[in-house]
């Protein structure tokens, strides 16, 4: 043990005390959150699990086809057949349910926060360092307080994922709105539009390509965190990955890992295709030189 002149600050202990206090004081609040999240997750899981494999696979492939084209549609179908063939389909649907729910919650928080930060420099100045903290803190660390509060299962996984995936949603939304041509916003004001209307008719549509890039990032980060939440028993593909790690089971690890890759590619390609289909992106794409 090295002896420095600086006294040992019990920072960790303080945080631990704070989390304990949080847990005991807001127990009812956390219980409500837990109940609601669990109910929604169960419903989503049921929807994805109830129909036979091929119905869900064809529907998801049809979505890919509609978003991008027949090649992505076909690729999706092949990928999902591979997942089913290594007996990971059920886990993949659990993971998809976790990702969809966590992303939806993250975006529901991130986009309004991003809008607020774009319109208010003070909010922006506060939000930015908080986001930096959230994004750079090692992902595993989130799991510790979350487990203290919500114990194990899907709910702590979802909550940790929301916190981890939030940052790019806020950042891209703020950036997108701030990047909107000042003159166009001025035009809105000059013709007597209200700020709310300018947001709806000018800022959000023009920021949409950037916001959609943020949505894509949120979903990708959610997927990576959902896998990590296998550590706290969130289930799905992450559960098998963790199990394979604990048992040094190469074959299970590869199969579960490959399924994660296929799911990730599917989500990424579909969301980025959707972002290039917004009216503004289309209008800008037709720009004549």
């Amino acid at each position: 043990m090295t002896d420095t002149m600086i006294p040992r600050v019990q920072l960790g202990d303080w945080v631990a005390t704070f989390v304990d206090w949080l847990t005991s004081t807001f127990r009812p609040v956390f219980d409500v959150i837990k109940t609601v999240l669990l109910a929604v997750y169960d419903a989503l899981e049921t929807v994805l699990h109830a129909p036979p494999f091929w119905v869900v696979a064809v529907l998801l492939a049809a979505l890919a086809y509609a978003a991008k084209g027949w090649r992505l549609g076909l690729g999706t179908l092949v990928g999902f057949v591979v997942i089913a063939s290594v007996n990971q389909w059920g886990n993949a649907m659990d993971t998809l349910a976790l990702v969809l729910l966590a992303s939806a919650i993250a975006l529901a928080i991130a986009i309004p926060l991003g809008i607020w930060a774009a319109r208010n420099d003070r909010v922006s100045a506060v939000v930015r360092p908080v986001l930096d903290f959230m994004q750079t803190m090692p992902a595993f660390v989130y799991l510790i307080p979350v487990v203290t509060i919500f114990l194990t299962g899907a709910v702590p996984g979802i909550v940790a994922t929301v916190v981890f995936a939030l940052a790019p949603g806020v950042r891209f939304t703020e950036l997108g709105i701030r990047q909107v041509d000042k003159e166009v916003v001025e035009a809105g004001h000059a013709f007597g539009s209200t700020p709310g209307r300018i947001l709806r008719q000018i800022q959000l549509p023009l920021a949409m390509p950037t916001i959609m890039a943020g949505v894509n990032q949120v979903i990708m980060l959610s997927l990576s965190m959902v896998v990590i939440s296998g550590l706290v028993g969130a289930g799905g593909l992450g559960g098998d990955v963790v199990a394979a790690l604990q048992r040094i089971n190469i074959s299970l690890g590869f199969e579960a890992g490959l399924s994660v890759v296929i799911l990730a590619m599917y989500l990424d390609r579909v969301t980025s295709a959707l972002s290039s289909r917004s009216p503004v992106a289309k209008a800008l794409a037709t720009t004549s030189a």
Partner: peptide, 21 residues
Amino acid sequence: LRELRRTRVSMVFQHFALLPH
């Protein structure tokens, strides 16, 4: 002010400021 902008004074911008979509 918004009412005045709607009814009394309009503006043309250097870089046109049209809504691209």
